[in-house]
Computed example of a mutant assay.
Amino acid sequence: MKTLTFLALLAGVLAATPALAAAPHERDGMLVDDQGMTLYIFGGKGMPDAKSCEGDCARNFPPALAAPGDKPSGALTLLPAPNGEHQWAFQGKPLYRGLMDKKPGDRSGDGLNEVWHSVRVR
């Protein structure tokens, strides 16, 4: 009984501890997040807006946030995000996730409104 109680307690602690995401990395010539999902840059003027995102930008193209303790490396840098966290950037351009992508390798946002682009690293 003590073993079951301990295991249940341990499972609760592990479930409450957020997993740290890995930094963006290259896969098949594309920059992806820790889940293998395509990352995007915004190529429009100024900041992304409802027209360029086809609706709510924060929902459709959320920033690719860094985990606490993540460190910049090479062309991958960190920028301050509006919420006090840090957002990944590639060659100085902020990185975003595309919620229209359903599985690793999808690039549904590539070319959207001629301002969203997946990041090729080769």
Rank of each mutant, 00 (worst) to 15 (best):
R97I: 01
E26W: 00
L4M: 11
V13S: 11
D33E: 09
E114R: 15
V32E: 01
L4S: 15
T5A: 15
L10E: 09
K103Y: 00
G92M: 09
G43M: 06
V119Q: 10
F90Y: 13
P18W: 00
K71G: 07
W88M: 07
H117D: 08
E114T: 01
Y96S: 00
M30S: 07
L10P: 08
D70S: 09
D70L: 09
L78K: 15
S118V: 03
H25T: 05
D28G: 15
K93D: 13
S108R: 14
E26Q: 12
L39F: 13
A81D: 10
D110H: 15
V32G: 04
L9I: 15
C53A: 05
P72C: 06
C53V: 02
L79V: 13
H86N: 14
P80I: 10
Q87D: 14
D70V: 00
G84P: 12
P104G: 14
E85L: 09
L7C: 06
D110N: 11
L39H: 07
H117S: 08
H117I: 01
P24S: 10
L31V: 01
E114D: 13
D110P: 13
E114C: 03
R120Q: 00
E114I: 03
R122A: 10
D70G: 04
F90E: 08
G92Y: 09
H117M: 04
C57K: 13
E54N: 06
Q87G: 11
D33S: 14
V13W: 01
G69V: 04
R120E: 02
K2N: 03
F42R: 12
F61D: 05
A81Q: 04
S118T: 08
P18S: 04
D33A: 11
F42D: 11
L9P: 06
A22C: 06
M100N: 12
A11L: 14
K93H: 08
G29S: 14
A8V: 02
R107W: 05
L99P: 11
D56Y: 01
A64P: 10
G98D: 09
T3L: 15
D49E: 14
R122S: 15
L20Q: 13
A81I: 03
G29V: 05
G12W: 04
A21P: 13
